[in-house]
Design a protein around this nucleic acid. Sequence first.
DNA 1: ACCCTCCGTGCATACGAAAGCATAATGGCA
DNA 2: TGCCATTATGCTTTCGTATGCACGGAGGGT
Lengths: 334, 334
Amino acid sequence: MAITSRDVARLAGVSQPTVSRALRDDPRVSEATKAKVRAAAEQLGYVPSEAGRALSSGRTRRIGLLITDIENQFYTHIIAPVHLQLERLGYQLMLHTETADNDTIVERLIANGLDGVILATTTVDSVVPLRLRDHGLPFVYFNRTTSFVDADATVVEPTAGFEAAVSRAVALGHTRIGAVLGPSNTSTAQSREVALRAALATNGLSLSPDDIRRGPFDTRTGDEATTSLLSQPSPPTLLFCANDVVAYGALNAASRRGVSVPGDLSIVGFDDLPAASWPIIELSTIAYDLTAMAGEAARLITRRIEQPDASVLHVEYETSFVERRTLSSAPLSD
Amino acid sequence: MAITSRDVARLAGVSQPTVSRALRDDPRVSEATKAKVRAAAEQLGYVPSEAGRALSSGRTRRIGLLITDIENQFYTHIIAPVHLQLERLGYQLMLHTETADNDTIVERLIANGLDGVILATTTVDSVVPLRLRDHGLPFVYFNRTTSFVDADATVVEPTAGFEAAVSRAVALGHTRIGAVLGPSNTSTAQSREVALRAALATNGLSLSPDDIRRGPFDTRTGDEATTSLLSQPSPPTLLFCANDVVAYGALNAASRRGVSVPGDLSIVGFDDLPAASWPIIELSTIAYDLTAMAGEAARLITRRIEQPDASVLHVEYETSFVERRTLSSAPLSD
DNA sequence: ACCCTCCGTGCATACGAAAGCATAATGGCA
DNA sequence: TGCCATTATGCTTTCGTATGCACGGAGGGT
């Protein structure tokens, strides 16, 4: 049925190994032979089998990207740049989601013969990094780290962004500030919380426990948390959200309750996703170069694969504050 | 390095083929032996190699999903249900995007040893279906068809949705109606255009060529088209958009120009994506069961793989009109 | 008690490509 | 003219799993 390198060899009048070498542009094959082989391959519509290649060479040039949820816009926006960068480096992307339990995930990552994995979802207490290390499968962290297994990583340094955002908020008269934080078992949520609290402290403010909610990085979290926060007798005038997707939920909750944004409530996100700058949204947010970071993760994993003993790199991305419609002066208290 | 079935065989005191059979729960292996083998596999952390399996059996239980663009929300919302349904059926999903030319795409689909492909992007004039057929690789159309290669398909029947939407619009006093249509080389755009024109004709209306714009199914198309339509001296009072993602762009364009929606301009989308019902959006749209349709595509491709000679199925999904904020009475002309 | 059947397992091999090694052909130089 | 170096190619084996086939052993029927 399928055409193999043997068929090509027969047509070109050479041996199967020569076909293999010729098509991979091995310098030991003469140009004349390469031309013959290419012509034969073309004529037969030959496509090398990845399975055969993988089995023989032990490499697949395939990289896994592990994410939580494809429907989440945040992940959506990292897939494209990772894919693009991997393509440039001659690798293919294989998407994996956390629909199953950790053991099944690790098993799939290994079974598929991936050359490496980008972890974009790991909680600080996940066993996935451990398992991958035990199996000798290279990996890098994207926008995450864990304390007990060190590896290459791309991380966001949120301090500068929060400092700018908080000092601007203070200048606008906000004193009662709330937060919808991410899951406390993620390094991302942890570092953002620390940076936010530090920036508030610098300005003589703090987060009241009543004004804090927590949940996964999704729209629903923002919606429910904001609904809950707004039902207090005297709610905060400004909400910092764990990320933009959470902030969309906050906007929805405010809209549903007839709370004016930013008149009654200001909202600040984190990530500066494309939709944050849409005219119908205009979300104030803390920005960094997400696309570059995704590309860098791709570069790191291929580097690790090709130079297994290279020193471990942690690449940091700086943040800045982008002010848009959803932040304005605190309402006058009466 | 990696643990193979041979290692497991040695530890369990059986032959390699017996390990293979035991772990796949072959009825010809006794329960006692299966238990021994499973224990040995567990102890060694054995994971079967997909490459070896693929090479030997000629099957990968892997299905490709070909989409245009991951960042497009429409595709985002079909990936999850397809993934879920395939998992239930014991298959894995491999995502492919149209970043490269058609030849490269087809080559990748084939090289990866996919058992089948779901085409979610095909234009009516694409050679991809032809090539796949020539290579004997099964495929199904998702939300698309082409005229010259018949195959299983899931399609949307837009007539009912447009009839309901148009008659409602007419009742609200709209007479000047515009449209932002999709690419005319997609069956989707074609069938929606036909259905819209038919519904308008039933109500004694028609689309003026001046009130039509066309472009890819993305936000930018909606934005630019709407900007262009609104710059006419006397613009339409209602826009039908090729899909919801295009409609988001239309909303943005209106917002940027200070055109009130729905006060000055009503907007209707197509697809009823989750964000369409967000309080901050509230988009009127034509709805159908996208999740079910995605699941059905998964079911169709596995059926085709397992029963290559089954008769070709075209599964249709009915549409309805969902009225939300962005549609209201036509402004009084003066 | 014998034969046949069926069950469980092992043996041998195939899948497609890659890589080490061997070898034929070529050319240069003495 | 002969030898060696070099280049180009072929031969053989390998990767890990699945499968057709052979075979030994147990059990049942007569």
